[in-house]
């Protein structure tokens, strides 16, 4: 559509208006992105503290088929003495994150929330857990053991 006093002009008013609108909404999108990106980054989980990724224990501290709960970078880890070595298993259940307990009599990890069961190497034996418990690295040195994040 043309305006009266615009007759014959190279740029009709409607075109100019459309171009301006496009420019305006374009810059609105740009401003939104400029604000949105930093905000989105800001609310992202902050990186975790990298400290203490190994824990040392004296090797006479855990009895045969007993377990000890230790903290490895703030995460609960169960260390079990199997007689011919040690297993270090993350105690966070792979189902909904409850903390599993070690049942010495059955030699199994048991989850109090929905009854997940795992063997001493963390493999699922029963219950709703979708994945085995995470296994950590254990290094046996003379007189002590070192548990490390794999």
């Amino acid at each position: 559509m043309r305006n009266d006093d615009d007759r014959g002009a190279p740029t009709p008013v409607a075109d100019r208006r459309r171009a301006l609108q496009l420019l305006l909404s374009g810059s609105a999108v740009g401003v939104a992105a400029l604000v949105g990106w930093p905000v989105a980054r800001y609310v992202q989980p902050a990186p975790e503290d990298e400290a203490a990724s190994a824990v040392e224990l004296p090797d006479d501290e855990i009895g045969l088929w007993d377990a000890k709960l230790i903290a490895l970078r703030g995460r609960p880890v169960l260390v079990v003495n199997t007689g011919d070595g040690y297993e270090a298993i993350s105690a966070v259940c792979t189902h909904l994150g409850c903390i599993v307990k070690w049942k010495k009599g059955r030699r199994q990890f048991f989850c109090p929330c929905h009854g997940g069961r795992f063997d001493v190497e963390g493999r699922v034996l029963g219950g709703p857990a979708p994945r085995p418990l995470a296994r950590l690295e254990v290094e046996e040195l003379p007189g002590r053991i070192v548990v490390r994040l794999a």
Partner: peptide, 9 residues
């Protein structure tokens, strides 16, 4: 206590 889940949550 993040290291101890009580029964029946």
């Amino acid at each position: 206590d993040p290291f101890d889940t009580p029964p029946n949550v």
